[in-house]
């Protein structure tokens, strides 16, 4: 059973089509990346999953059933626009949000303390929210989202505004949650994180799906035609006819080949010419390259 399933979902605001014929599904225990440039429809898609808006056509299924508000008790949602009650005490706030998601007061209190310890933020517990730093508020928000032990966690741009230390802590926590069997969907446009963390992705642009599948599937669709090498000596091998494009740096080069088979030939030519090679690596394209290539192929990076 898929945790989330979107079937031909479409959403139009006034005359602007925000999401068009979008379908994907997320399995339990998966880290799912929803990618796309700014204004591509990520937030609109997420809002339909948590019932803030309804699709104009198509179906959103949660836990195998058509969308019902009851299902939201098993879902966590961290919106891109974070918000907490500024004047409220942190612990009151956490308990209140926990209760809204169906916890009783004692459980909400207990779990709040546990989470604050886990995220190393116990000193914030007795304070008012407005007294906290931005990073601490993010952590509190994160805790508030997870208190009710949701099976599906949806996060819109979770890393925006986090320093590297806290971003790493968040990544580790998300991986832990994934390993506990929860499904996690997050949107971002930072490809390095997606590449490290995600099991599956869906790339959308202008509300339409451009690319989707597991990380392996997606990458295997692209040829392993990147070569990175470090060397000393003659650079004549860069004139090899199999090379489509080459960038020469000080003692290293990045080469894109016309096809995968050209790599061995290139290596042979360089060795024959007496070039001293210390590194020669054949690579698949990075997700970032795929992203830029696919999105600009549509000619529509809104940035």
């Amino acid at each position: 059973m898929s945790i989330v399933q979107l079937e031909h979902v479409r959403k139009v605001y006034d005359k602007k089509v925000a999401v068009e014929d979008l379908s994907f599904s997320i399995e339990p225990g998966t880290m799912f990346g929803l990618l796309g440039p700014n204004g591509s429809g990520k937030t609109s898609t997420i809002r339909m999953m948590v019932g803030i808006t309804l699709p104009d056509s198509g179906v959103v299924r949660l836990f195998g059933e058509p969308f019902k508000r009851d299902a939201l008790k098993r879902v966590a949602y961290l919106p891109e626009e974070r918000g907490l009650y500024k004047k409220m005490k942190v612990i009151d706030q956490l308990v209140f949000l926990g209760q809204l998601r169906g916890l009783d007061e004692a459980t909400a209190l207990k779990r709040s303390h546990e989470w604050c310890e886990r995220l190393q933020i116990t000193e914030a517990i007795p304070k008012k929210t407005e007294e906290l730093s931005k990073g601490m508020q993010q952590k509190i928000q994160f805790i508030a989202t997870l208190l009710h032990e949701p099976e599906l966690i949806i996060m819109d741009e979770p890393f925006s505004g986090l320093d590297p230390v806290n971003a790493t802590l968040l990544i580790e926590t998300m991986l832990d949650l994934r390993n506990e069997g929860r499904a996690i969907l997050f949107s971002t446009h930072r490809m390095d994180q997606v590449e490290k963390m995600c099991d599956a992705i869906c790339l959308i642009s202008r509300g339409k799906e451009v690319l989707s599948g597991t990380m392996r599937e997606v990458k295997s669709r692209y040829p392993r035609n990147r070569v990175q090498m470090t060397f000393e000596g003659d650079t004549g091998f860069l004139r090899n006819p199999g090379i489509e494009e080459a960038k020469l740096y000080n003692g290293s080069a990045e080469v894109r080949l016309k096809d995968e088979s050209g790599a061995q030939q290139l290596l042979a030519q360089a060795v024959n010419a007496g070039t001293h090679i210390t590194r020669f690596e054949v690579m698949e394209p990075t997700l970032e390259e795929i992203f830029i290539q696919e999105v600009s192929a549509g000619g529509n990076v809104d940035a």
Binding site: V50, R69, L72, Y77, G83, L84, L100
Partner: peptide, 17 residues
Amino acid sequence: IEEKTSRVFEVMLATVR
């Protein structure tokens, strides 16, 4: 307005109507 400017609404709306 306070809930609007502090953006608490989005968080709340994921659970309540």
